[in-house]
């Protein structure tokens, strides 16, 4: 069954009718972990706000658990969980008070759905009398997730939960999401970090309010049309410059310690010779494993 169905959704802002969400359509299966991957300003937050009924669309339609986001907004409000991008808990209330408050607002109790949050809550329980404002980033995030889960939502919307969070906390957070998925909760998550895409069941790459591609991360990577090479040299900056000026290069860019490049014609030996001829040392050329980031760059190119 489809938990979320989005059809030609449009959102514009202001007098200039700046388009934030441009004719977006996708659907999410029940129990799926779906990622909206794209940079800031791509329209991720607007989509989430429309789906959680806090924003009215300017065109198109969408439903969550079969309820229309405009007509049945009250039904949706009582059944979804939402974690906005900014840390949105009461900083001057303790962990326990925050959780209790949100449980009551949603007409439930902590005890009733404790099993859902138990895994996460035990990690922050030792600090339950500490005020939320005094928690570390990772702990705040865990608390926010508990609060979004406490009323046993059918669908969970997480808007950039890992932005500004260090890589270790990010990993932990994704592990929590994987475990939640086992509870058959549909999860929609947005992120600007391309490397998190592979942790989702399916993803939509989004930029400028438009969806560039939707599929499983593996299929998206497999669909990469060109042969991608990873190239390394001791002089990185110079390498990038030389690649840029190479006549056969379609696209080239830095990628970690390597440069990634696609060519019209891939003769690695000729390429190595070309690079050495331009004074580069320690040249290494090999086939690269395509990542979501490579695909995104390709789609933007």
């Amino acid at each position: 069954m489809e938990a979320v169905v989005v059809k030609n959704l449009v959102k514009t802002y202001g007098k200039e009718q700046t388009v934030a969400v441009d004719n977006v359509s996708f659907s999410v299966e029940q129990g799926e972990l779906f990622g909206l991957i794209g940079p800031d300003g791509a329209g991720k937050t607007s989509i989430f706000r429309m789906l959680t009924t806090s924003l009215l669309p300017d065109g198109g339609s969408a439903s969550v658990d079969g309820h229309d986001i405009v007509q049945d907004f009250r039904r949706i409000r009582s059944s979804v969980g939402y974690m906005p991008g900014k840390f949105s808990l009461y900083q001057d209330l303790t962990i326990e008070e925050n959780l209790h408050f949100f449980a009551t607002v949603f007409g439930t109790t902590i005890e009733e759905n404790y099993h859902l949050i138990k895994d996460i809550y035990v990690q922050i329980e030792p600090f339950k009398n500490r005020r939320a404002g005094k928690l570390s980033g990772g702990m705040k995030q865990k608390l926010a997730l508990c609060c979004a889960l406490i009323h046993k939502p059918t669908t969970l919307f997480l808007d950039e939960p890992t932005t500004g969070v260090d890589p270790v906390s990010r990993k932990e957070f994704w592990e929590m999401l994987r475990r939640l998925k086992e509870q058959r909760i549909t999860i929609l998550v947005s992120t600007p970090y391309m490397d998190e895409a592979s942790l989702c069941d399916r993803i939509a790459l989004i930029q400028g309010g438009k969806i560039l591609s939707i599929d499983t991360p593996q299929n998206i990577v497999n669909a990469y049309p060109d042969k991608l090479l990873a190239i390394k040299a001791n002089e990185m900056y110079k390498l990038l410059k030389v690649l840029e000026s190479h006549p056969g290069v379609i696209n080239s860019y830095a990628f970690g310690e390597y440069a990634h490049a696609t060519f019209h014609d891939t003769d690695t030996h000729a390429l190595q010779a070309y690079l050495r001829g331009h004074g580069l040392t320690g040249v290494e050329v090999k086939g690269a494993e395509v990542t979501i980031e490579d695909t995104f760059i390709k789609l933007l190119h």
Partner: peptide
Amino acid sequence: TGGVDPVT
């Protein structure tokens, strides 16, 4: 570069 697209 927080939140910036990969090309930028």
